[in-house]
């Protein structure tokens, strides 16, 4: 019973990690860049979701329209993903594009700085008081023979798997996806195919940020109290999942996200829970020692210039 209960929780946390890891993974494979601000984009997405849902709820309360809570949640996810994609594109345009030919270390440091700016900018804008994500759907608990599952957990897992599948199809089947795969292999030659690099970079950031926003809202549904530093630890862990999944692999990042969730949830079954992350990430470290390229890393050309 405890096992299945943990399994449910692992799937929920895995969903957060997977959605955030996808953005890390895409940017890393396509632009050769660790976007260390990505965890903070998750945070910004959660706050935008907070803003959008609060606005929708108060509009509904004023009688502007009558919408059920679940529909407000769906609208919140869609609108916030859209808005947060612009945050990602701005970060790319302002922070990373000028550094495209700079040493990779400079770009990584830029990411850290953008992260701090997003955190403290939020603090400056909204103050230190924590905000509470509005409760849009009632929690219903199902008792599956002693294992308790809530409708929220089911929704979180389904939304995250659906989005990850959608991204996978996008990359497999569209010409933008094809260009992204080509960029992951050999960035420098792609302009010779008539592909505008800057637009592709913007698209990559937009997609990753939209997924991070979805994760942020799902997180807000499960854990409604938001704070400006909520993206740091979860962002680092998702970054680990992205590396574990293998360079540029959507399937890999998703599975690795869930794997992290599992390891984190199952370690406390055996060890004291204060040792959870210590043991969980020691396991991850050992996996990387034996599989330094992760699980599904695709081949790529090491040449950086034409």
């Amino acid at each position: 019973m405890v096992f299945f209960q943990n399994l449910i929780n692992a799937l929920q946390w895995g969903s957060f990690y997977a959605l955030i890891a996808l953005g890390y993974s895409m940017v890393y494979s396509i632009l050769m860049l660790f976007n260390f601000a990505h965890g903070d984009i998750f945070m910004v997405g959660a706050y935008i979701g907070f803003g959008v849902s609060t606005a929708l709820v108060s509009l509904a309360a004023m009688g502007a329209f009558a919408l059920p809570g679940w529909l407000i949640l769906v609208l919140t996810i869609i609108i916030s993903m859209f808005l947060t994609s612009f945050v990602g594109m701005i970060v790319e345009r302002v922070g990373y594009r000028p550094l495209r030919d700079a040493p990779r270390a400079s770009a990584a440091i830029t990411g850290l700085m953008i992260g701090i700016i997003l955190e403290t900018g939020n603090l400056a804008l909204l103050g230190a008081e924590r905000v509470k994500f509005p409760s849009l759907i009632e929690t219903t608990t199902y008792d599956l023979g002693g294992v308790f599952v809530t409708n929220k957990k089911i929704m979180i897992v389904l939304v995250s798997i659906t989005l990850s599948f959608a991204l996978h199809q996008f990359i497999r089947r569209t010409r933008w996806g094809m260009a992204m795969r080509a960029m992951a292999f050999d960035f420098a030659v792609v302009p010779l195919m008539g592909v505008p690099l800057n637009r592709m970079a913007a698209l990559t950031f937009a997609l990753g940020s939209a997924l991070a926003a979805a994760a942020g809202i799902l997180f807000g549904v499960a854990y409604p109290v938001l704070d400006p530093y909520m993206g740091i630890l979860i962002g680092w862990k998702a970054f680990v999942a992205a590396i574990l999944g293998g360079r540029g692999s959507v399937v890999g990042a998703t599975l690795a996200g869930f794997l992290l969730g599992f390891i984190e949830m199952f370690v406390p079954m055996i060890f004291p829970s204060t040792l959870r992350d210590f043991i969980a990430y020691t396991i991850v470290l050992l996996i990387l020692v034996f599989r330094p390229h992760g699980f599904f890393g695709e081949a790529y050309s090491a040449r950086l210039r034409l």
Binding site: A179, R181, A182, A184, F185, D186, A188, V189, M193, A299
Partner: peptide, 15 residues
Amino acid sequence: RLFENLTVTENLMLA
């Protein structure tokens, strides 16, 4: 400098 992770047709279509 082909995209070795793409098929022959995909290389042509990407162009």
